[in-house]
């Protein structure tokens, strides 16, 4: 059980959550502001990059992934990579059809 203790005892302070929440709001503001500017083809990339950063904040801090065992981190990593592989394979198919 000893390797599980780190999570059981970890209490995230309100301040940390408030900071993350402010960061998320700022990133939302940036996405909306940036959407008005036409960067051409990279516009969608910028939007998705910001969404990915927001998700990372939610996953690590709000969902406590930062304080979980390595097992949890590997699980999430594998799940995300699997989804990315789906996207790459799908587009590889569509682009070269």
């Amino acid at each position: 059980m000893s390797n599980h203790e780190s999570h059981e005892n970890h209490v995230t302070g309100y301040g940390v959550y408030l900071l993350v929440w402010l960061g998320l709001l700022m990133l939302t503001g940036i996405t909306v502001a940036v959407a008005g500017i036409d960067f051409g083809r990279i516009t969608i990339t910028v939007a998705l990059l910001i969404a990915a950063i927001k998700s990372w904040l939610v996953l690590t801090i709000f969902m406590h992934l930062k304080f979980e065992d390595t097992t949890f981190k590997i699980f999430v990593f594998v799940a995300v990579i699997t989804f990315v592989v789906f996207i790459v394979l799908l587009f590889a198919d569509y682009l070269f059809m």
Partner: peptide, 13 residues
């Protein structure tokens, strides 16, 4: 939080 993350992607798209 998962429901939140899904929305984080739905909103810009």
């Amino acid at each position: 939080h998962l429901v939140d993350i899904i929305w984080i992607f739905l909103f810009p798209l």
